[in-house]
Nucleic acid binder design. Structure first.
Length: 288
DNA sequence: CGACCCCTGCGC
DNA sequence: GCGCAGGGGTCG
């Protein structure tokens, strides 16, 4: 579910926990936790050191890269939260967490607040790093963050692949943060056909696409993310960016700019929507 | 690189 | 009952 705008909304919603001591943590489902030891081995079962969950410590900093969220601990440990398709992070002052089904992890803070991780489908989870360095190393494998992507960095990323631009935008190793919704929305905004070959885009198109990605993501953050079904912010409130979607999930409906019927197809196992008129094929490579 | 899997719930 | 859903890891 959550792409960069949703994760950024959650990151800002968690600011109140910075500096607050974490008194306890309860892991209800061990298998959503990946525990990386000092020897780099990763464990999905077995006991977890409370300190790795930041128990007895506090969060000194919240960081986001792409769709991932890192809680930097005062004890040198790092928790990275990956939301997958249905993951949520909530903050509540209630002792009893509302809608507790699928809540897999609960942190209890010294001020009485509770932070929790809920994930119906369990595609998401948390990763525990013993050192800041191990965490940074993992993040170094992600492409540059999409929110403030420069033309130059986008150009560099896209020149590394001959796959269709839509598929490339979804590859977090090339560019971090864009998912299925905002890939389609950015391509529409830039007037680029999803089948265009990444490393064959004209410079002008790359300039335009970088601008569209920044604009679409920033606008979605202002709207506090897109809620199609599961996404909620840390206060359990839905976002409203879905009201601004021009193409995503609108196949068969008229383009809001030119009225042409929007088309859709599957690319990289994901539905892709575009306007055949506003996003003309780059050459003759458009399939179907 | 693409194919396939992980999992639950919802709408048709 | 089936197909589909914002993601991503692993396999061949």
């Amino acid at each position: 579910m959550p792409e960069l705008p949703e994760v950024e909304t959650i990151r800002s919603g968690l600011e109140p926990i910075v500096g607050v001591e974490i008194r306890d943590c309860r892991v209800r489902r061990r298998d959503v936790v990946r525990d990386q030891w000092l020897d780099n081995s990763v464990h999905r079962r077995g006991p977890i050191e409370p300190g790795s969950l930041l128990v007895g410590a506090s969060v000194v900093r919240l960081e986001r890269k792409g769709k991932q969220l890192a809680l930097i601990g005062s004890n040198g440990r790092v928790i990275v939260i990956q939301l997958g398709m249905s993951g949520q992070v909530g903050l509540t002052s209630a002792t009893k967490i509302p809608n507790a089904k699928h809540v897999h992890i609960v942190w209890i803070l010294r001020n009485g607040q509770r932070m929790f991780f809920r994930d119906t489908r369990r595609f998401g989870g948390i990763v525990l790093y013993r050192t800041l360095k191990a965490h940074e190393h993992a993040w170094s494998r992600l492409g540059p963050d999409a929110l403030n992507i420069s033309t130059k960095d986008l150009q560099r990323a896209l020149s590394r692949t001959q796959r269709a631009i839509k598929v490339a935008l979804l590859d977090q190793h090339l560019l971090a943060g864009v998912g299925n919704i905002y890939a389609d929305e950015s391509l529409f905004d830039a007037g680029i056909n999803p089948f265009c070959i990444s490393d064959a885009l004209e410079h002008k198109q790359v300039v335009r696409l970088a601008g569209s990605i920044r604009k679409i993501l920033a606008r979605a953050i202002k709207a506090r993310g897109s809620t199609l079904r599961d996404y909620r912010d840390t206060d359990a409130q839905p976002g409203s960016a879905q009201l601004e979607h021009m193409v995503y999930a609108r196949a068969g409906q008229p383009c809001l700019v030119c009225g042409t019927t929007l088309r859709s197809t599957r690319m990289a196992q994901r539905i892709t929507c575009w306007c055949p008129r506003c996003q003309p094929a780059c050459t003759e490579q458009e399939s179907e």
